[in-house]
Computed example of a mutant assay.
Amino acid sequence: MSQPPAPPEPSYDLAPPPPDPTVKVPLAIEDWLAVLVMAALALITFANVLVRYFSDQSFAWTEEISVFLMIVVTMVGGCSAFVRNHHIRIEALADGGSTQRQRRLAVISQTVVLAFFILLAVLSARLVWDEYVYEETSPAIGVPTWWYSIWLPALSIAIALRTLGSLRRLLAARP
C-alpha cells in the first residue's frame, strides 16, 4: 500500500513592508523612545511582581508610573504609525476605487487627524495649566500631576507635526 501524498506546504508570500517615507526628523527617534519606554515599563512591572511575590507588599508608585508610561508609548507609537501610514483605517474604503478617490480620502483623513491632535494639544495644555495652578499632586507619590500630564500636549503636537508633514508630502505628490 502506498502512502498518500503529503499536503503541500503553505505559502506565506508576505510582501516586504514599504520603505519609510523621507522625513526631515528621523523616525528612529520615535522608535528608540518606544523601545526605551517599553523596557522601563517591563522592568517596573517585573520589579513590582517580584516584590509582591516575596513580601506580600507592592510598590505603590509602580501603577502610577506604569499608566504614565503606557500613555507615552501609545502616543509615541501613534506618531510613528501616522508617518508610516500604518494607522487604523478601513482599508476596503481607503484603498478601494480610483487613485484620485484614494488621494482625496487620504487628504481628508490626514486633515481630520491633524485637527484632532491640534485640539487635543490645546485642551490637554489647559488641563496641565489647571493642574499646575491648583497644585494637584499624585495620590501614590505626591508629585505634581502636571509632571505626567505635560507629555500629552507635547506628544500631541509631535503627532500633529508628523501629520502635517505627511499631509504636505501627500499634497506635493503628483496624482
Rank of each mutant, 00 (worst) to 15 (best):
S66K: 05
Q100C: 08
L164D: 00
V128C: 04
K24N: 12
S66T: 03
V67N: 08
Q110G: 09
A121F: 02
Q57S: 14
V72Y: 02
S124R: 03
M75H: 03
P5G: 11
A6L: 12
Q57W: 14
P4W: 10
A160S: 04
S98N: 09
R174D: 15
F46H: 06
L164P: 00
M75R: 03
M75A: 08
S98A: 09
T145G: 04
T45H: 09
V122A: 12
A47W: 07
G77I: 03
V23H: 06
T111V: 11
V67F: 06
L43I: 14
E135M: 12
S98L: 05
P17C: 03
A60T: 14
R101M: 13
V112H: 01
A115F: 06
A15S: 14
V107I: 15
A42Q: 07
L43K: 07
G77E: 05
I150C: 11
R103D: 05
R168S: 13
T99F: 12
S2M: 13
Y148T: 07
T22A: 15
E63M: 12
M1E: 07
I65R: 02
S80I: 03
A173F: 03
V83T: 09
L170E: 04
V113K: 00
S109R: 09
R162N: 01
S66D: 04
N48T: 07
